[in-house]
């Protein structure tokens, strides 16, 4: 091939790289984003989730910015009057640990260990549920102290931000429980490891958003 000759684009990753080597026999390349018939050679589903998470940064960016602008506006109850830092710290730790249990679930299905997969999915869901229960308790106690959604600008911004995050966690729990049921009924095997990985990405994202909220909203009032 001369230097000026156009490079022919390989139609598929398999064509570009040749057949899979022997040591990959039996490995489901599709589940790891390989062998997919697209321009990148990567899993479209996984790329789609990353695109969604990238765009979700804008949603939470808007909510955090609004909170920063509004938290000291208006009168009445402010953050320093209602926040219970030790309680929220425990909630944050619980959510952090749920991220760790999620990686164990991903690791378990990659090994084909269905029992461990179900165990860790359940643990992750329970930890997420504990976090949500804590948030419900927090909102209820704030409300009893007189901080309703429309009490002032701080309360509206605070409830919007943490409420949206809570909705994300709830959606995550629903996805985790769906995976749990799929696994129980034998419809989630090792060849669908990527599905668990993608739900895991969503769950970790929810966790890192809380890392930001915990510091910006609670620890730096």
């Amino acid at each position: 091939m001369t230097d000026n000759a156009p490079t022919r684009v390989a139609a598929t990753p398999t064509e570009a790289t040749g057949p899979a080597p022997d040591h990959l026999d039996g490995v489901d390349l599709e589940s790891w984003g390989l062998g997919t018939n697209n321009a990148t050679g990567l899993s479209n589903n996984k790329l789609g989730m990353w695109l969604f998470l990238g765009s979700d940064c804008l949603l939470f960016g808007a909510l955090i910015s609004t909170y920063l602008l509004m938290r000291h506006r208006g009168t009445g109850i402010g953050p320093e009057d209602v926040f219970d830092i030790p309680f929220t710290s425990v909630s944050s730790f619980v959510l952090l640990m749920s991220s760790m249990s999620m990686v164990f679930a991903v690791s378990a299905i990659a090994r084909g260990d269905d029992q461990k997969l179900r165990l860790w999915l359940l643990v992750t869901s329970l930890l997420g549920g504990t976090f949500i229960a804590g948030q419900v308790y927090e909102f209820t106690s704030f409300y009893r102290e007189g901080l309703g959604y429309t009490t002032n600008l701080f309360s509206s911004a605070f409830y919007s931000l943490t409420g949206f995050h809570g909705v994300h966690v709830t959606v995550g729990i629903i996805m985790l429980m769906s995976l749990f049921v799929l696994s129980l009924t034998g419809r989630l095997k090792q060849d669908r490891a990527e599905t668990v990985e993608i739900v895991g990405l969503y769950w970790h994202f929810v966790d890192i958003v809380w890392v930001l909220i915990f510091t910006i909203v609670y620890l730096i009032p």
Binding site: T7, V9, P13, A16
Partner: peptide
């Protein structure tokens, strides 16, 4: 001719090395 590690084939090659990364 099969293109390897060149041009847009890099994407395919990189994907193929994903297994090793995993």
């Amino acid at each position: 001719m099969t293109v390897t590690h060149e041009g847009t084939a890099d994407a395919g090659y990189e994907a193929a090395t994903d297994e090793a990364r995993h």
